[in-house]
Design a protein around this nucleic acid. Structure first.
Lengths: 170, 170
DNA sequence: GTCTATATACAGATAGAC
DNA sequence: GTCTATCTGTATATAGAC
């Protein structure tokens, strides 16, 4: 059900993520959905909490990566089908409706990445550059809806971009 | 009235930008508002059209600027109180509710900037880097709501960031 | 042109049967 | 646990007076 809510947010934006739509997508009725999540707010909170957890796991994994953390960070910002990425895009959709808890959670996530990347960048400007490129990639993912794909670099273009960011940051 | 709609979107997100709120902010009744804009969709279309026009004017002005267009572009991406920036943030809010026309307009704007910047960057990677930093700045502006300010570089930090982006891009 | 009053639609949430 | 039926609030839009 949480997956259905996430998918509804990603595909149709907050406008389309109604309890009815979520219930239908999850294969239950509205009443059935509300048995598990007592309110829409409960559903939203659960999504946000899941995103927080996935961000923490993601950072732990990045820190263990043999490749440079900067490269891994930028590369994973492009993906859009991992559980983490879907949770982030869905939470972004929520944040744009004026949902303060979602905005705060995204800010906190950014802070977690910032602290993990700081030791691997030359100075604060370089750190901000890396974070902003990642933000930009997420922004384009968040704008991309069903009918309107975003202009996100892939393949060789992505490799070249990552190389450029690494050169600028270290 | 269009200004009131824009302000409502920026301050309260799409959720708070009701016809009632817009009418109240504009100092008219709902009926009065609907006399000028026959539907909410008309109001949305008008906002999107205004953003398109402002983007075109902005690019023309940037191309005439004596400073490097890359520096000007990044610097103006940080501002959030010019008519253009307000229009962009408001349109972003709209886009996140699943409003396809808003998403398309933002994609088109990005294309306009892309074409203007291309002659002033070394290669496609550099071009994407500049655009993504700008996207990232807008993303953070868009996330920042009344109670949740975004982490946007200012003053000396901004100057240093711009210098770094210029160095990486040319 | 701008207002008030009202119609219509739909979202979230509740109640109670099964 | 899951359903259907229903209540309530709120948003868009219309009608008609002034």
């Amino acid at each position: 059900m949480l997956d259905a809510f996430e998918a509804a947010l990603i595909d149709g934006g907050a406008r389309g993520a109604t309890m009815d739509a979520v219930a239908a997508a999850a294969g239950v009725s509205k009443g059935g959905l509300l048995y598990h999540y007592a309110s829409k707010e409960a559903l939203e909170s659960a999504l946000i909490e899941r995103m927080r957890r996935l961000v923490d796991l993601d950072v732990e994994e990045m820190l263990r990566s043999p490749d440079g953390i900067v490269a891994v960070f930028v590369r994973t910002s492009v993906q859009s089908d991992t559980p983490l990425d879907r949770a982030i895009v869905a939470t972004s959709r929520l944040a744009q409706t004026g949902h303060d808890a979602a905005s705060v959670a995204l800010r906190d996530a950014r802070r977690v990445w910032e602290d993990a990347l700081r030791p691997h960048t030359r100075d604060e400007s370089a750190l901000q550059l890396v974070l902003l490129v990642s933000d930009g990639l997420y922004f384009n993912s968040a704008l991309a809806t069903q009918g309107v794909p975003g202009p996100i670099p892939q393949g060789d273009d992505l490799d070249a971009l990552i190389a450029l960011v690494e050169r600028a940051a270290r």
